[in-house]
Write a protein that binds this DNA or RNA. Structure first.
Lengths: 170, 170
DNA sequence: AGAGCATAGTTGAGCACTCATCTATTCCGC
DNA sequence: GCGGAATAGATGAGTGCTCAACTATGCTCT
């Protein structure tokens, strides 16, 4: 709910966290917000499901493999990997455990820091990624880029980068 | 991964599901895709987390309450509610069970269809929604609209609606 | 050098979601 | 009106994620 629920005019009350009258969305904002929310959710669901069905790899795991594959030596500190995957430490730790069971990643002690571990992409993991990548890129093409004009693609990039500066100021 | 993994030129092989050479993303497309993916994920995580911390309501449950609140009689068939929440039947069924335990929704037999059930928003549920709404709208303002120019908001709506026509053709 | 604090990562409990399966009702064609 | 397919919804097992501990190592200051 991003519009006012009840019709009765309520004066600013002292209860809610954001003080003062809520800044409700108007009709246009409402439409924009819902379009964004629903489309992003549907697109993510769709890509995740298609990748899962075709390869057995959920998108969250796929991201981990991608990040490792793009790094020199195909290895990375757990914390950095978590940051790059927009993942919590805990979540990454659980996920890497699953990937280890599949033989796609292994943990390796870190020379410089006795506390640290390196996640290393195995050859099997790399092969799994190579097999999955065409499926994934085809999904991104079909459900995203094929639907958009060049101007819309540009707008999408601009929008995303603007939001990232606010949400994830590295 | 949406770019080619290995550097070696591979001729089209007969294994992958999408036949022919994958349509890899170029650099600009890559940036646009990542910006979109990361920003949507971060925004959703942020809004969900803030709403959860402030009100104890996860965003998925919030959506259910919103949909019910906007319907005449504040009740809706389970299936339609699932569709509107972009949720599977199963997921909605589980979620409504939890909401029933909180006393925010109750199930009611459906007169016209013996198979069907109505999910009904209770007064307590409505009150919970009224309390949460200002928190939520403030998050949407702060993390989305306050960051964007009017032109960007318009572009976001256009983008979202374009994708919805493809992904969710009602 | 040792105390205290920060950092790296893991673990387990609890909740949510998915998928397959199951029951009950309705619809449809004969 | 009866048999079979379709629809509405629930349920349970398996898996992933979150949150709050917890262990172990490194860092800093005196």
């Amino acid at each position: 709910m991003t519009r006012q629920v009840s019709r009765g005019g309520r004066t600013p009350d002292a209860v809610g966290l954001p003080a003062g009258e809520p800044r409700w969305l108007d009709g246009d904002e409402q439409r924009a917000w819902r379009a964004w929310l629903y489309s992003s959710q549907l697109l993510n669901d769709r890509l995740d499901r298609e990748l899962m069905r075709a390869t057995g790899i959920p998108h969250a795991y796929y991201e981990i493999l991608v990040q490792l594959s793009e790094t020199p030596g195909r290895q990375m500190r757990m914390s950095e990997l978590a940051d790059r995957c927009l993942s919590s430490r805990s979540r990454l730790s659980h996920a890497v455990s699953r990937l280890e069971e599949r033989g796609w990643v292994r943990r390796q002690e870190c020379a410089e820091d006795g506390r640290g571990l390196l996640a290393v992409l195995t050859d099997e993991g790399f092969a799994a990624l190579e097999a999955a990548a065409p499926i994934h890129v085809e999904g991104v093409r079909t459900h995203l880029f094929d639907q958009l004009s060049p101007a819309q693609v540009e707008a999408m990039r601009d929008l995303g980068e603007t939001l990232l500066r606010h949400l994830d100021p590295d």
